[in-house]
Amino acid sequence: MSEHGGQAGHDEKFEQKVVEHDQEHHIVSPIIYLTILGALLVGTALTVWASYIDLGAWQIAPGLTLFWNPVVALAIACTKMTLVVLFFMHVKYSTKLTKLTVACGFFTFIALIGMTMTDYFTRAWGRW
């Protein structure tokens, strides 16, 4: 069986063979990459659009107010990050070890930021 002899340009059979040979190493298709690109650009447009609208605030308690604009902006950013990590960075298709590593990283990051914030925002050092 000669390898893709004489055929110029696009060679479906050869591509298929490369895919089949990679049993563990998953190749993500360009269609998925294009879809994610579209989603990321839509997310960017959405976050800019949302920033031009006053989404108001939630008065949780006297002196403690939650503004919705930053919450929405960060929620969109987190969604975009998840898409990049799962698809562009192939975590969805990677080994359990990689998945665990990534999860550990985010957990440690959230824990460190969370503990720092609870400290800074609960000290009685007046209002700034």
Partner: peptide, 28 residues
């Protein structure tokens, strides 16, 4: 190429957060 891609996407993610935090969230 794969591992450099991871680096490049990571730098992209940092910007995905820098953009709203620095530019957008202080409009309202």
């Amino acid at each position: 190429v794969e591992n450099f891609g991871l680096y490049w996407h990571f730098v992209d993610i940092v910007w995905i957060f820098l953009f709203p935090l620095l530019y957008l969230i202080s409009r309202y």
